[in-house]
Write a protein that binds this DNA or RNA. Structure first.
Lengths: 237, 237
DNA sequence: TAGTGGTCTAGACCACGGG
DNA sequence: CCGTGGTCTAGACCACTAG
């Protein structure tokens, strides 16, 4: 984030162009030669910018024909692949911290995070509300080795945002394991549902810029208050 | 698929290299200059090949340091983002065709597929088994406009494979809408579960090479026999 | 067969990591 | 400061679409 690459800038500009012109699914955007003139960069840079947009699901490219707008408007749905924890998923989110402790990483999480030794970590349990309805119950472990400081106060907001902006530590990618289960009595109570009701359980493992695992989380979603979407990227490249 | 691009070939070769050397999570692969010599292509082509692998979750790149192997071995999990319907998700799959009919596209699907007129389509209901256990109940609609021929016999195998190989029609991308619900009595019966049990419902919309919507599907997964994973790509580009 | 998107190259130069 | 990965350019040439 220290500087903006040219293709990122161009890709943002094209996104704005689409918004300003009010283009929708199936509309054609200007041809590459025109984009080269519009933004004063080389062809390779335009192609790179367009590839970025294709991966984000904003456009799709048809060789020999043109480049077209994709993204249908989706609201009320949580992106499954958005790589930033829960914090940025919904606006007006409200968080209640149920537990905040500093402990040794438990056995199960040691395996998941590939930690051999007994490492110190923060354990945070939170309940996230959206429009005053409980949406997700979260139990997260943060390794002190990589996240040296955390507080209950910080946990009331976005921990990931604090890590990236406050600790200036880049979060890079994640593995997600997804299952559907029945709620336990305790989970049901917190989510204002009944024991045995459906539960979407997502186990995340998050990695820093150099591939170090720093966090794992278990998220239990309220099946009544959460819908998800996922757009496959247009092409891999 | 008519010809292989150089960066695809190189990316396959690097994947094989990783397998042959038995490299695992965190292992370093040769530096770019070495890869250029190994495969006799330019730097840009190597970078493009590596970007492909990063998007697939096979490697991650650390600027100034090296390129490292990512993919942890995951078995028994279904990839949520694999863009090829159910056919290629699990091996040894077994499919029972419950319904095969040629009808006018129903109201609800017309909206989802953005079809204004009354279009003819194939409607297929199938139950997929894995290791003799019911895994997913599928209800799919295929527009005859784009998929002119389909048969009950073809539906016993992979319909997507038939479309791509038999009809020589390229499938490009998809939108997925995911919810968790309770099973209806009818669904429960077919999936050998109880009414009210948890159900993962995935609604897919699939697009052809030029952006035409040709298919929508509703998939109901058996919560006991299905686990999913999703790897966020390393960087968008 | 013209128009449009995509691949590939060589080389200059930039950014980040680590000793 | 060096090693390594990444960006960017100009231009040649290739592949697909559509009239």
């Amino acid at each position: 984030m220290t500087y903006m690459k040219k293709y990122q800038i161009v890709s943002d500009k094209i996104t704005n162009y689409i918004k300003e012109k009010g283009l929708v699914q199936g509309d054609k955007i200007p041809k590459i030669d025109t984009l080269i003139e519009m933004y004063g960069v080389s062809k390779a840079t335009i192609i790179q910018a367009l590839s970025l947009l294709a991966q984000k699901g904003i456009v799709y490219k048809v060789q020999g024909s043109g480049i077209f707008v994709r993204r249908p408007s989706i609201s009320g749905y949580i992106s499954l692949t958005s790589n930033r924890g829960f914090g940025e998923v919904l606006d007006n989110e409200n968080t209640k911290v149920l537990k905040f402790e500093e402990i040794e990483l438990p056995e199960k999480e040691r395996k998941l995070m590939r930690c051999d030794e007994k490492s110190l970590c923060y354990h945070v349990v939170r309940l996230h509300f959206y429009q005053d309805k409980p949406v997700v119950l979260e139990s997260s472990y943060f390794l002190k080795e990589y996240i040296p400081f955390l507080s209950k106060d910080i946990a009331k907001g976005s921990i990931f945002k604090f890590i990236e902006e406050g600790l200036n530590t880049e979060i890079r990618f994640s593995d997600k394991y997804i299952e559907v289960k029945k709620l336990t009595a305790e989970q049901a109570d917190l989510l204002q549902l009944e024991e045995g009701d459906p539960a979407l359980e997502v186990n995340d493992v998050y990695y820093l810029a150099k591939g170090q695992i720093f966090n794992c989380s278990k998220l239990i979603y309220n099946y009544q208050n959460s819908k998800f979407f996922d757009q496959s990227p247009d092409e891999l490249i």
